[in-house]
Design a protein around this nucleic acid. Sequence first.
DNA 1: CTGAAAGCGCTTACAG
DNA 2: CTGAAAGCGCTTACAG
Lengths: 360, 360
Amino acid sequence: MALGAERLPTASIRDVAAASGVSHQTVSRVINGSPRVKESTRQVVLRSVASLDFHPNRAARALAGAPVQSVTVLTANTRLYGFAGALEGIEAAARVAGFTVGVRVVEPGAQAADDAVSQAVELGGALIVIALEQKSIAALHAVPPDFPSAAIVVTPTADEAVGKPWVWIDDRKAAIEATNYLLGLGHRTVHYLSVPAWADTNPRLAGWRSALVDAGAPVPEPLCCSWEPRSGFEAGQLLTSDPDVTAVLCGNDDIAIGALRAMHHAGRSVPADVSIVGFDDIPIALYCSPSLTTVRQDFVALGRLCFARLLSLLDPSSIDQWAPFPDAKLIIRESAGPPHKRRRRGPVAARPRPLPTPSR
Amino acid sequence: MALGAERLPTASIRDVAAASGVSHQTVSRVINGSPRVKESTRQVVLRSVASLDFHPNRAARALAGAPVQSVTVLTANTRLYGFAGALEGIEAAARVAGFTVGVRVVEPGAQAADDAVSQAVELGGALIVIALEQKSIAALHAVPPDFPSAAIVVTPTADEAVGKPWVWIDDRKAAIEATNYLLGLGHRTVHYLSVPAWADTNPRLAGWRSALVDAGAPVPEPLCCSWEPRSGFEAGQLLTSDPDVTAVLCGNDDIAIGALRAMHHAGRSVPADVSIVGFDDIPIALYCSPSLTTVRQDFVALGRLCFARLLSLLDPSSIDQWAPFPDAKLIIRESAGPPHKRRRRGPVAARPRPLPTPSR
DNA sequence: CTGAAAGCGCTTACAG
DNA sequence: CTGAAAGCGCTTACAG
């Protein structure tokens, strides 16, 4: 009960038992769907449950050792596109399954990740970590191996993920595809504006780099941004002074929009002078001018999937279907095109595809 | 305990008592900060707590009737700018106060609001309703009057809110200010693209309308949009065919960006031909082309404030400081300006102000 | 199929 | 200042 609040007395399992003329254990069996109850008594009990408006007390249930239908989501952020999408998907799936959803943001700092995890573990229930950046990855590592948990992670390397209840979108492959698309349009190389990268193994960065290497293209130094459009604007301004920059891949759409603006400020036309490609396909991407060519990622579906993995892990009787992970998909719009004629030197790697009309 | 998970045995209050050579009641007093404990025994107990890594069990605490330090946030959505900002602020403030935060999305449908509330009430703890649209407003009305709760609401009328633990941003006033700004630039009237409105008393709509009436300007029919940029685009397309439309106020920035795009598609220049003003000041607003003149609203601060109100309500001993609500603020950028010369007929209401350079 | 027993970990009175 | 008692509402064995 909360401080300062006098609650109305609520019906307990014993009230239902008395009203039904049975023991409270039988009531427990009925509300928990045990098969070992005579149908006629079940009916009687159910009627009492309804008339008394009985609802089982979660705290008592948890204390008595019953499974707690709750999950705490550990995340570094609740608003950024990927994080918020994942949370939305988890909440929706959990709600359908009758689970309560807790949210706990992981603060910066070495100790914070451990604290967040241990507090979540104390709560009981289960844990989902949205491990898409450094702080929450630290939290993921701090989860006790025997604690029921699942995680949304960045594309893991090799068999790092075998046996782990992890889900992800293959953004490494997507970065390769996006880079190859730009190279295929005829660009000599592709510059990269990165979201915060916590290691050299950052998959989007790695995909971009490997695509350039495989194509024999020069690999420029990537510029590290934050997640915000401002950082894309500032990084974009650095690039405008370099006439060799004709194609820029961005770690997310906010950065891409910031970079777009920087190009406009500098009088460089997009895509005629510079092509820009983003990551995410935020709703606004279609309505920018020019509309943004970007890699669509369905984080809501990923969140739902993650909860499903958790559920199958909690209930060993359920068959884990291993539903496929959502695919990243390059959405071709207006912000990328062939390089300006005067910039094209030497043989072109592939015939430039025509610039498509904007589409969803 | 969750299904399928064998947890390590964790230290209980009795283990701490045994290790300290005191009764478990004394341990309870220590961990709850009771003053009626000898300092020396407190030290002993605290040492045992640390060495055993003891953490009180929340379920047991709740069951024994202690205050539950948890709050459930009821909302229609976790991603839209205002809702997500409010959630972020609530979570941050709750985390600092040691509260657990639950999130429950209210589904559409008459019954859903009641269900969401009763489920949240059963959980115990407290409730915060982000009542910014119809479904969650229905939920707010369904909260039992004696249950500890607070709410983020749309600007209430008159003394509708007296004595209620409600917080809001005065968007009615802000809509008046934005409308007057456009009229002051010399526009004959201002069209309105509304976010979903659940009543004629919608404050932004009401503010816009009253500003027009007060100025003696014609009041065009408002167009109802969803929250998404697509709806702004579609509504914007309807307006492009009408040459009398020179100024458009939008219920949020996403709609404004959609409308901006519609104008571009139709070959109408913003702000030379049409002025567009949004609501929210999303991070991208500054980086659109043209950058968006918009009404900034600090929903994160509002969320923090709402939690503070809840806390003061839960703890009667605390003095409720009645911190002021965050102000909405018109941020003048590039997307609004004086109407095109050829569109200006008759005397101009006020001398147009110069179009400022983009700024934060 | 159903009931009597024991206990989950804590807190609130009540004694001293 | 500290301890022994009782109980929060439920569930899991254990009997029958």
